[in-house]
Design a protein around this nucleic acid. Sequence first.
RNA 1: GCGCCCGUAGCUCAGUGGAUGAGAGCGACGGAUUGCGGAUCCGUAGGUCGGGGGUUCGAAUCCUCCCGGGCGCACCA
Length: 548
Amino acid sequence: MIKREITRVLAERLEELNFELDRNDIDVEEPSNDEFGDFASNVALELAAETDLSARDLASSIVEGIERELFSSITVAGPGFINFHLEKDFLTDSLSQLLASSDPLGGISVDEKETIQIEFVSSNPTGPLTVGHCRQAVLGDVLASLYRALGYEVETEYYFNDEGRQMNILARTLWARYKQALGEEVEIPEDGYKGEYLVDIGEDIASEHGSEYSRWNDETADFFKKIGLEEMIGRIKEDLDLLGVQFDSWFRESKLHKEGKVEQVLSALDERDGTYEQGGALWLKAEEEGAPKDAVLVKSNGDPTYLLPDIAYHLDKLDRGYDRALVLLGADHQRHVENMKAALRVLGFPRDFYQVLINQFVSLSNEGEVKRMSTREGEFVTLKSLVEDLGKDVVRYFMAARKPESHLEFDYELAKKESMDNPVYYLQYAHTRIASIFEKTEYADLEESFPLKEVDLSELGKDEEIELVKKLDKFPEMIEIAAGDYGSHHLVSYGEDLASTFHQFYNKFKVLTEDDDISRARLALCRGVQLVLKKLLNLLGVSAPEKM
RNA sequence: GCGCCCGUAGCUCAGUGGAUGAGAGCGACGGAUUGCGGAUCCGUAGGUCGGGGGUUCGAAUCCUCCCGGGCGCACCA
């Protein structure tokens, strides 16, 4: 990472001048205008106020003491910017390192091996996953890959409620479908799940068990609850599988009750004076801890609300020893998050343990029409139909492409196009083109006689070539940024940018030329692009095809 | 009414806690191929960065007010 190296050089020089500052405070940027060098820094402008010098004079004195061997020139410009023009070798060295290690991440990793648990989707098993869950599934899955790539110990988990009111409603609804399958005129319960998805399960039960469960009693309820749960969870897993998302762990809420975790949390909150009783209900003093209002933990009928077991769940996460618990939630859970934070503060959780990534909703646009979704009313576009229609690669790419806090408008028409209009193929095509070149060169032979990692890269010097080298060098930094702000969209932006630069290069220059030295240098460059593109697509969970 | 998020080109969106011409893709218009895959490339048109104020040497970016949109403000999850 060249930027890191320049920052280091600058930091050393500033130390010589007796400035005290953190290396992270030193800002090294790539100027938008390349007249201003390959990299530039504004430190002099920032530090001038601490000195008697003008920013320009300070910049000059900083520049004077910097060793020149890496740079073709260092200049002071404008109000006091320091512009670095790099020796070409400095740039191509980063490519050499990439080829030598075959590691696009340049060996970056976290200092301490931190364990992070990522909980996402966690939709209750009362209906099929929809496009909204789809966004979260992709986001969570990409983040997990990202953190693994950075050396974290990562565990992904899906949390679901396997008993309680919703399960009862599911059982009642399923029973109604079963009765309908037996030819009886039965209405779906008022608050039941009206979608069609329970119909065939009801039919299956009817054909297997006949009229065995024609009466609603405890035994029937248990049976339909159990089978409904199994069926729905099974389908959810199948759907996620279609998307290429697998969870390390599935966590049932009932486990918390069985193990007394809920009780434990309740008494812990109580001990710390975090609760009170009012109107027959038990309240959390959330307002004292920064939430807008207090929240109910146990309803006056004795049932816990959603909040209480979730607190218990996070106590369980803490007990399991994770350093960090990241939870992905939809925008409608904002209030819940405030209550959770308040509760965990009462319980004295480590400050940064509970981390939440709120993602905004997805709307599906098709010829200008925007659809809303409701599981309860049975109106939705399912994850399954989306993936079956468009394929895993396209769906994942589109879902990962926007920053989580922005609404995602899923352009169905564009996603459907299997042509150059679709940005997924743009990236994949770049990868394919490179694969195709290597096929042509009978690469195996060439690699044997002239290992690419030993190729003389001084032949690289065209603007497009240098541009590519710089972009490859930037990959690890981009990954750190993406992990740092939980944003899969950085991968997409970077990928499109890299692919674009590659296509320009490819269009303008031939890789395989009469001149063997040039050919080898360009092949080495292509290998670098290939490594990075493959890694990138891999992190996104999108395939990197050799042929399309 | 209060809180969170969003508002950048006709459309969909990038722009890593400031600085040195405001970007990409799609759409529109016009071009490029007897040579490594044209699923590509090049060019043109298109923007008061929602609006006003403020901080600063400098603001799409920070502060504030206003406007518009999404979500939330349950003894639902």
